[in-house]
């Protein structure tokens, strides 16, 4: 009784990844279509801009941490991920979770206004002025804009995210061949999907691994810079998971 398409193993994997992606994304896919998010008003933007740097960093660290927690849940639901050693699960998440968060951002990016959903409303890069890292914010918005223009489906984003996590090239893996096998299945599923939907052109337009890695490094550098300027704040007030991954 199952349609032909779903009986092919890579189609089954794609379906499974899509379900995991949908279950762990915020905003949910159904809220994306015809969204009615308001844009922050001038007064609201000024209020954010007037926040002390340490407070704004803490606020953003909390939002990033919530997103990371959803990515951890996504990973746990990926077929085969939990069968890896816990050592390797942690290596992959440490290296890839932030990349997935960054890619997921494009779902809630409004290209017309160059704004991203933040704390319930649409925010432009200027809202984050008090963070004191304009280049990082600009790079993140550039990435979101570029990805948004690709108009990726949820299936594409789910598989892209899975491939960012299940990356046998990450240093310190204990069982690299095992990760490579899982990566191979995901890679095939992605290519089959792209062929079926005539979206093979997408591959050449995706951000390079180097670009995502550079963006994550930029984030780490800014965390270090913030710690030098505001010693003790990260230890005292940032979410433990954020500290574990980035500090």
């Amino acid at each position: 009784a199952c349609p032909q398409a779903l009986r092919v193993p890579s189609e089954l994997l794609t379906q499974s990844v899509l379900l995991s992606h949908r279950a762990t994304c915020h905003p949910r896919a159904e809220d994306l279509q015809g969204h009615r998010w308001a844009t922050f008003s001038r007064e609201e933007i000024c209020a954010y801009q007037s926040q002390p740097t340490a407070e704004m960093w803490q606020r953003c660290a909390r939002r990033v941490t919530e997103a990371i927690e959803r990515v951890v849940e996504f990973a746990k639901r990926l077929r085969g991920f939990l069968e890896l050693s816990q050592h390797d699960q942690i290596v992959l998440l440490k290296a890839g979770a932030m990349e997935v968060v960054l890619v997921r951002m494009c779902r809630a990016f409004d290209a017309a206004t160059r704004t991203v959903l933040f704390e319930g409303k649409l925010a432009g890069p200027e809202l984050f002025r008090s963070l004191g890292c304009p280049e990082l914010v600009a790079s993140i918005f550039d990435l979101a804009q570029g990805l948004s223009a690709l108009r990726c489906s949820e299936s594409e984003l789910g598989l892209l995210s899975a491939l960012l996590l299940v990356n046998a090239g990450r240093p310190w893996l204990q069982d690299r061949p095992r990760v490579a096998r899982l990566q191979g299945h995901l890679d095939v599923a992605f290519r089959v999907l792209l062929r079926r939907t005539r979206r093979e052109g997408l591959l050449a337009r995706l951000p390079s691994p180097g670009r995502l890695r550079a963006l994550c490094s930029q984030h780490l550098e800014q965390v270090q810079a913030f710690r030098r300027l505001h010693p003790g704040v990260v230890s005292a007030a940032f979410p433990p998971l954020y500290r574990e991954l980035f500090a």
Partner: peptide, 14 residues
């Protein structure tokens, strides 16, 4: 060293 990640990965519920 990665106490929180360990905990999240071991935690059974969604």
């Amino acid at each position: 060293k990665h106490r929180i990640l360990h905990k999240l990965l071991q935690n059974g519920n969604s």
